[in-house]
């Protein structure tokens, strides 16, 4: 049996082109030994949920700096559920006003990260949310 790796989908939903944060996080997760599927810019929630299913990921990381998180995040969470992937952990990063954080968490988001967030914290949060080695 081969060692099981944590698989994470890093996606950028919405129309903004800010992809530095997503790339920084993708690389940090790779350096932590995870397998990161990067889908690129301008993904619809449908595209993200479909990729999450095909890739059988453990976690989905959404990077949103456009301000549209309150529309995009619930849609992704809902589609994951519809597809039977309610166990997949969702993380969100980008420009998210403080008052939206508790509402996102109520929807099932594990954690929210803003500018300057430590990637070490992201890594340890993902590791502790997913019940396997990797």
């Amino acid at each position: 049996m081969t060692e099981r790796k944590i698989r994470v989908l890093v996606a950028k939903p919405g129309l903004d082109g800010h992809d530095r944060g997503a790339k920084v996080v993708a690389r940090a997760l790779r350096d932590a030994g995870m397998e990161v599927i990067y889908t690129g810019l301008r993904q619809t929630p449908e595209m993200i949920a479909e990729a999450a299913l095909q890739e059988d990921v453990d976690a989905v990381g959404l990077s949103i700096l456009s301000g549209a998180h309150m529309a995009l995040v619930p849609r992704v969470v809902e589609l994951l559920k519809t597809n039977g992937q309610q166990d997949v952990k969702v993380f969100v990063g980008g420009i998210i006003p403080d008052e939206d954080v508790p509402r996102l968490k109520e929807m099932g988001v594990m954690e929210v990260y803003g500018p300057g967030a430590s990637t070490e914290k992201v890594i340890s949060d993902i590791r502790s949310a997913i019940p396997t080695a990797g």
Partner: peptide, 14 residues
């Protein structure tokens, strides 16, 4: 995969 960390960024879907 990275030979050092065993991790990977899989970007073909882009």
């Amino acid at each position: 995969s990275s030979p050092f960390t065993g991790g990977a960024v899989l970007g073909d879907r882009v």
